[in-house]
Simulated assay, not measured.
Amino acid sequence: MTIPQRQYTPDQQSMEEDTALRYGTIWGDGAACAANARQDLRAFLGHAPRTGFPSTPPTLAMDAELAASELVTNAVRHAPGPCGMTLQLSREELTITVWDSSTDEPAVKPADPRRIGGHGLRLVHTVSDRVVVALRATGKRITAHLPLAPNPTTSVLGGTAVPA
């Protein structure tokens, strides 16, 4: 079951620089899946131009779908109970936050092309500008920050940021 939290559009907020479009959803125990997260993200990004935000570049949309999919999959696999996802779009970045009930801090595993699985968090780090983990008494929040414009001082080659 998906329960929308709150949705704000720029016309409902003051038109300050911190104006953002937000969407949230909560899934009950066992109800979350990566496909739902991707569907919600596509709908959110598709709605953004109707509220005054520019269209999301296709490469950013694909990176965002990957991040949302991996974060929700990890929440389903490693945490009992409900989980949720919050999306926020500003003029500078898209943030994808997934929360769950596990208090275990996730760790990026070393690259190993022979290992099956365990690559999701590394992928999220690769497509994101930064990833923030916030532990809470009842679980954790993981937020992936994806910039809307590429950083002019770096480029990504083989998953590693290097000076341009």
Rank of each mutant, 00 (worst) to 15 (best):
N36Q: 13
M62N: 09
A48H: 00
R122H: 06
A164D: 12
G52E: 07
A161V: 13
A34V: 02
L66Y: 02
P82F: 05
M62P: 00
R115P: 04
V156A: 03
L146W: 02
Q39R: 10
Y8K: 06
G120H: 05
G118S: 09
L157D: 11
A149I: 09
R130Y: 13
C33Q: 14
G24S: 14
E16C: 03
S69D: 15
D29Y: 09
Q13R: 08
R141C: 08
V98G: 01
V124L: 11
S102R: 01
F44R: 00
A61R: 14
G120D: 08
L60D: 05
R141W: 06
S55N: 14
E92D: 05
R6F: 09
L121I: 13
M15D: 15
A48V: 03
G120F: 02
P82W: 10
A32H: 06
Q5D: 12
R115F: 04
R38V: 12
L123G: 02
A107E: 12
A48E: 00
T126M: 15
R141G: 00
H119I: 07
G46N: 15
A134Q: 15
P10H: 04
I26F: 13
E65S: 13
P57M: 01
R114C: 07
P147W: 08
L66M: 11
P110Y: 02
L87E: 00
H78C: 03
V162K: 09
L148M: 08
T138L: 02
R91C: 01
H119C: 11
G30V: 13
F53L: 05
Q88W: 00
